[in-house]
């Protein structure tokens, strides 16, 4: 059986919701989605030097009437903590799609502390957290996150489980 093309399903959801701006710090788990967004003429994919920049970018875009999404790895969640408080204070809608590390079968011990703290940190800062633990869960969860964020002016993160991404060794990661 072909593996489910969940990145293409996410892209379809983003396009249907009218997302035009995609801020990202690359992650192996988001490789295909980033490529799909770059290839989409209606979207602008903006590479960031740090995930924190994505918070300012999304806020400015919303002030200008545009929907955006932020792609990052769980380690990046640690880089946005103070800035993401702005979403709560200003009631800015934000959808963050977070590929998880430091979970099941992690090979890099330096990923574990942040990976295990990701949900708690986001929730402590007022972001609503959805998780998607299987490939077929991802698109409906992203759809729900987009609706919740843009109908209710809140920050919502979707954590895409390491069980789905399934990186287990440095070798496998480099071949992705």
């Amino acid at each position: 059986m072909q593996p489910r093309d969940w990145p293409a399903e996410i892209h379809k959801e983003l396009a249907a919701a009218g997302v035009r701006l995609v801020g990202y710090v690359p992650d192996a788990g988001h490789k295909r989605l980033i490529e799909l967004c770059q290839a989409d003429k209606k979207m602008r994919a903006a590479v960031l030097t740090t995930e924190e920049e994505g918070i300012g970018l999304a806020t400015g875009a919303w002030l200008g009437g545009e929907k955006s999404v932020l792609l990052m790895q769980s380690s990046g969640v640690g880089n946005v903590i103070n800035a993401i408080g702005m979403m709560k204070e200003c009631r800015i809608p934000l959808v963050s799609l977070v590929t998880m590390r430091g979970q099941q079968g992690e090979f890099n011990p330096w990923q574990v502390a942040m990976g295990q703290a990701t949900r708690a940190v986001l929730e402590a800062m007022g972001t609503i957290v959805h998780s998607a633990d299987s490939a077929e869960d991802i698109a409906p969860t992203v759809n729900a996150a987009l609706r919740l964020a843009y109908n209710s002016y809140v920050s919502v993160a979707v954590l895409i489980s390491q069980r789905v991404i399934g990186i287990k060794t440095f070798q496998e990661q480099s071949e992705k």
């Binding site: 903006a46 875009a61 002030l63």
Partner: peptide, 22 residues
């Protein structure tokens, strides 16, 4: 005017998001 009271370090990025949207 959008005067920021926090999120130090994000003013230029906020400007970028706004400039791209408008």
């Amino acid at each position: 005017n959008f005067p920021m009271w926090g999120a130090m370090g994000q003013a230029a990025m906020l400007g970028l998001g706004l400039a791209l949207a408008q």
